[in-house]
C-alpha cells in the first residue's frame, strides 16, 4: 500500500469519526454500518421575484432544518429550462421526494414521466400544472398551496362589498402576473367570476406586469395615459400581486392622482410592503396568499417516506386584510 493511499484512508476515517461525533456520540458503534439515512428533499424554487417568494424559500429552508430533512435547493431564476434541469439532477441523485413550484403550467410531461419511472414522488407547491396528454394528477402525489381562484374571488367580493355601487359603472384596470402562470390565470378567472354577477363592473384594460414593481409601474403609466385619451376614468386597480400594485402606486402619484382615493387599489399576497402602503393610505386591501408552507411540506415529505397516504390537495390558511387593520397587523407579518 502506497503512502498516499494510507494517508487518504486515514484522513477519510478521521473525517467520518469527526462528523459522527458531531451527531451525538451515541451512534459511534454504527461506524461500520451505513448511518441512518437522512430524508433528502429536492426543491426547485422559481426564483426570488418578490418578497413573497423569498418568504416561501425561507419557510421551506427553516422547516427542513427543524425537521432534520436534507434539503437540496435550486433556484431556477424564472426559467422553466433551469427547473427541468434541476428536476433531472434530483432524479439522478435519487432524492427521496421532489417538490417544486412550477414557473409555468405546461411543458412538464417528459420530466415528470422520468420522475415517475424513477419512483420518486413529486409534490407541487403553490402552483399547479397541466399535461398535454393524460391526467396531470397521476404525476404528482399532492398539490400544496393556495387556491388562486378563491383569492381572485375574494378580491372581487371585497371590491363589490366596499364600493357598494349597483348601477354606476365602475372601470377597472388589471395588472396581470406572468403570462401563462397559474396565479395569473386563476386570479383573473376568480375575479371575473364575481364581476359577472355585477354587470356595472368592467375591466377596461388588462396587461401583464410580470409580477414586478418596475413593470407594474411602466404599464400603469401607460394605462393612465391611454384611459385619459379614450375619455375613461379609472376607478379601480386590481393587481395580481402586491409588488405590481406598489409600482403602480408610484405611477398614479406621478400622474397627480391620489392612490387609494382617486383610484381604489386591491392586490393579492399581503406582503409587508403592502401593509406599509395601506398604513400610508395608498392601498385599500390585500388578499393574503400565505407562503409559509414549509412545515406542511416537511410533514408531507415525512409521511410519503413513511409510506403513508396523503391528501391530493392541501390548502394553506389565508385571510383578507383591508387597510383599517393594517397598522395592527404589520408587526405580525413574517413576509
Amino acid at each position: 500500500m502506497s503512502k498516499w493511499k494510507k494517508l487518504t484512508i486515514g484522513l477519510s476515517v478521521g473525517i467520518m469519526m469527526f462528523t459522527l461525533a458531531g451527531c451525538g456520540g451515541a451512534k459511534q458503534e454504527t461506524a461500520t454500518k451505513p448511518a441512518d439515512k437522512k430524508i433528502v428533499l429536492g426543491f426547485s424554487q422559481i426564483g426570488a421575484e418578490s418578497e413573497w417568494r423569498t418568504a416561501n424559500t425561507e419557510s421551506i429552508k427553516a422547516s427542513a432544518q427543524a425537521a432534520g430533512i436534507e434539503l437540496k435547493f435550486s433556484d431556477a431564476q424564472q426559467k422553466q429550462e433551469n427547473q427541468i434541469k434541476a428536476l433531472r439532477s434530483f432524479i439522478q441523485q435519487k432524492v427521496d421526494v421532489i417538490a417544486f413550484s412550477p414557473v409555468v403550467e405546461t411543458g412538464w410531461d417528459a420530466v415528470l414521466q422520468e420522475a415517475k419511472a424513477a419512483k420518486i414522488p413529486v409534490i407541487l407547491t403553490d402552483r399547479s400544472i397541466k399535461m398535454s396528454s393524460g391526467n396531470a394528477e397521476d404525476y404528482y402525489v399532492t398539490f400544496m398551496g393556495s387556491d388562486f381562484v378563491e383569492e381572485g374571488r375574494r378580491a372581487g367580493k371585497w371590491l363589490v362589498d366596499t364600493m357598494k355601487k349597483d348601477k354606476d359603472p365602475v372601470n377597472i384596470v388589471e395588472l396581470q402576473g406572468t403570462v401563462g402562470s397559474a396565479p395569473a390565470i386563476d386570479r383573473k378567472t376568480g375575479f371575473e367570476e364575481i364581476l359577472k354577477q355585477n354587470a356595472n363592473y368592467k375591466i377596461i384594460k388588462s396587461q401583464t406586469g410580470d409580477f414586478t414593481r418596475a413593470k407594474g409601474k411602466e404599464v400603469m403609466e401607460s394605462f393612465l395615459k391611454s384611459a385619459k385619451a379614450d375619455g375613461q376614468k379609472i376607478d379601480v386597480l386590481y393587481a395580481h400581486n402586491d409588488d405590481m400594485a406598489i409600482g403602480a402606486i408610484q405611477a398614479i402619484e406621478e400622474a397627480g392622482l391620489k392612490p387609494g382615493k382617486d383610484i381604489i387599489i386591491v392586490s393579492i399576497d399581503a406582503v409587508k410592503g403592502a401593509f406599509e402602503a395601506m398604513i400610508a393610505g395608498k392601498l385599500n386591501a390585500t388578499i393574503e396568499c400565505s407562503p409559509l408552507l414549509g412545515d406542511q411540506l416537511m410533514a408531507a415529505t415525512k409521511d410519503l417516506v413513511a409510506g403513508k397516504k396523503i391528501e391530493k390537495r392541501i390548502v394553506t390558511k389565508e385571510g383578507v386584510f383591508p387597510a383599517e387593520v393594517a397598522a395592527k397587523e404589520l408587526p405580525n407579518r413574517k413576509y
Binding site: 426564483g47 426570488a48 421575484e49 431564476q77 424564472q78 410580470d210 414586478t212 414593481r213 418596475a214 409601474k217 409600482g247 408610484q250
Partner: peptide, 16 residues
C-alpha cells in the same frame, strides 16, 4: 436610474 425609479433594488429582475 432603474433602482431609483421604483425605489427598490430587485436582484433577480432588475435589468433582466
Amino acid at each position: 436610474i432603474i433602482c431609483s425609479n421604483v425605489s427598490s433594488a430587485d436582484g433577480n429582475n432588475a435589468g433582466l
